[in-house]
Design a protein around this nucleic acid. Structure first.
Lengths: 134, 134
DNA sequence: ATTGACCTTATAGTAGCTTTATAGTTTAAA
DNA sequence: TTTAAACTATAAAGCTACTATAAGGTCAAT
């Protein structure tokens, strides 16, 4: 299987595959005589794993960590769960921060209707004067 | 006022100030004979405005846009409000996406306790098999 | 023989800074 | 007065996770 087919199969661009290889997330595949990369099903699984992790918001470094656990399957999986717990709490704090931000933005927006000149705009005034009550 | 004092006043690093200048967000200040930048209160206000916008999650491009409105204070402020409305809806969709993600992560986490070997880890299995029901 | 689709590498660009390197200036202590 | 700490300057690289571009080699079909 060549890089284009693999890319289509998993739904990524070929450059992304080369990028993952370069980053050490995908093992370097064999090459044909002409230099073309040749992939196996294992590569497909590996790539799909990476993509699912990315969809879950894991960083490449975290994926690397998970892979190192996969390579040593008889450890306890405490570290895997800890990684996920960390990630969950990270996502939760992002949500909290964004909700606070939304409140702030909405109240800022409420300070102006659309019928003013920029000079008298409540939104700009609000930002300029720092009416942002944290 | 030199760059270090301004930085301390507003709570940013000196490099950040130079960066904003380079990006055209802060007007280039006068220089002393030795080349040191000399800032006025206006610069302080401008920098504080930028920082408050950043805290509100606005991009440098959006800040630039707001500044262009400030420079022409007799337009109607419709565009300012529109920019903010866009940003609010952007933040809201981020929140929605993160909440969906959190649900997914929590259910993945629930598929494993900590007393297994990596080989049998429900979390890794869940990702590997793509039990991610969108 | 040439077109088109595919493959290769290397390099730069994206956002918003932060870090590093290298060097000149000011200020305070020894 | 010397010297060292603290400040300033510029330029360039690093960060994340790709995406895009350039310049070229390979292959099948026409």
């Amino acid at each position: 299987m060549r890089i284009g087919q693999l890319a289509q199969l998993v739904g990524v661009e070929t450059q992304t595959i080369r990028f993952y290889e370069q980053q050490g997330l995908l093992p370097p595949p064999d090459r044909q005589d002409n230099g073309y990369r040749v992939y196996t099903e294992k590569h497909g699984e590996g790539l799909a794993f990476i993509r699912r992790c990315r969809i879950l918001g894991l960083s490449l470094a975290e994926i690397h960590e998970l892979q190192s656990y996969q390579d040593d399957p008889h450890q306890p999986c405490t570290a895997v769960n800890a990684l996920l717990d960390d990630h969950i709490s990270h996502v939760r704090s992002q949500i909290t921060a964004l909700q606070a931000l939304e409140k702030q933005l909405v109240s800022l927006r409420a300070s102006c209707n659309d019928d003013r000149e920029v000079e008298a705009c409540g939104v700009l005034a609000g930002i300029s004067e720092g009416n942002m009550h944290q």
